[in-house]
Simulated assay, not measured.
Amino acid sequence: MTAPLPDRPGAPDRDAPEQAYTDFTRSLSYGDYLQLDVLKSAHRPVTTAHDEHLFIAVHHVSEVWLDLIIRELRAAMDQLARGITDAPQKGLSRVVRAQEQLTNAWEVLKTMTPADYLQFRDAFGQASGFQSASYRMVEFLLGNRHAVLLRPHEHRPDLIGPLREAIEAPSVYDLTLRLMHARGLSVPDDVLSRDLTLPPVLNETVLEHWLTVYRHPETYWDLYELAEKLLDVEDNFRRWRFNHLTTVERTIGFKRGSGGTSGAGYLRRALETVLFPELWEVRTRL
């Protein structure tokens, strides 16, 4: 490996900190570009409890990752709707990486003990992650749909509108099945025209088509890869939910959640959700 040539005698040291830009009267600085003053101004604990700062920071960061996931899912879904199968996999890979960050956030929150949490839990009343519009949007785009989940957002027209549109539109899996149909693997009409506001249920004909894809990946390589990428997304979705459950159990046990759900019991039942049923069952039937 060739060493870099030294600066000419008397020339400025290119590696010195003095070479960095320091005058931002006419250009964007790091803080300006990221609007850090705005970002940090949103961090407003309502008590003097030390760990409330941690609690807010983890949830703020999680919301930012959720918004990125929504953006990437929508882009991938737009490509799938146009019959493109390779490009969406890049977006779905980014979704998986973002999900990993979401899951790891629970590990930071687990450093908060029950005694720490009880110092400020009552201060935020009925506020709960159950009311996260971004999380709900991710669920709707992935296909987990129940109309009752719209209710916490009815007081916000700016939130309820996009959520209603999402719950009535094809999910990422619906679009995948339409693509499968276009490729000559005939998906039944009752699947293609199903009530999109409901979660998917396993269909034997669709399962047989996925068995064909998995038995002949060289013929259906794009569908095969897409299926595996979707499984990565759901796998990480399950991990996030499991870590959420264990964090709640560790912090408040089986107390009722602040948003009115049963808390850990509700989260435990949510672990049973299956987003892409045929993609999981195909492993058993192969």
Rank of each mutant, 00 (worst) to 15 (best):
R215W: 14
Q35F: 00
K110M: 15
E154Q: 14
S27A: 05
I56N: 07
G259D: 02
P6I: 01
M137G: 09
P217Y: 13
M1S: 14
Y266H: 11
E165T: 14
L68G: 06
E107R: 14
K110Y: 07
W106Y: 07
H60M: 09
F124E: 03
S186K: 15
S41M: 11
D190M: 07
V191S: 06
R156G: 05
T2P: 02
T284K: 12
L73C: 08
V64M: 11
I56P: 01
L202R: 14
K255N: 12
R94P: 00
D174Q: 07
Y220L: 11
A81T: 01
S193E: 10
L149Y: 14
A105E: 09
H146L: 15
A169V: 05
S186C: 11
E281I: 05
F24Y: 11
G143C: 05
D51E: 12
S258T: 12
R74W: 07
H53A: 14
G259M: 08
G143N: 03
V96I: 04
Y30R: 04
H244G: 05
F140C: 07
G265Y: 09
R94H: 11
N236E: 12
V282F: 11
L223I: 10
L231N: 06
D232I: 04
F55C: 07
L92C: 04
A270R: 13
D32H: 02
S29D: 03
F276G: 05
W221Y: 11
F24W: 02
V108Y: 15
L279T: 01
Q79W: 13
R44I: 12
G257S: 00
F276K: 09
D23N: 06
E208N: 13
P277G: 13
V201R: 15
L54G: 00
G31L: 05
T47G: 02
P4S: 10
S132F: 06
I252C: 04
G125E: 06
L286R: 10
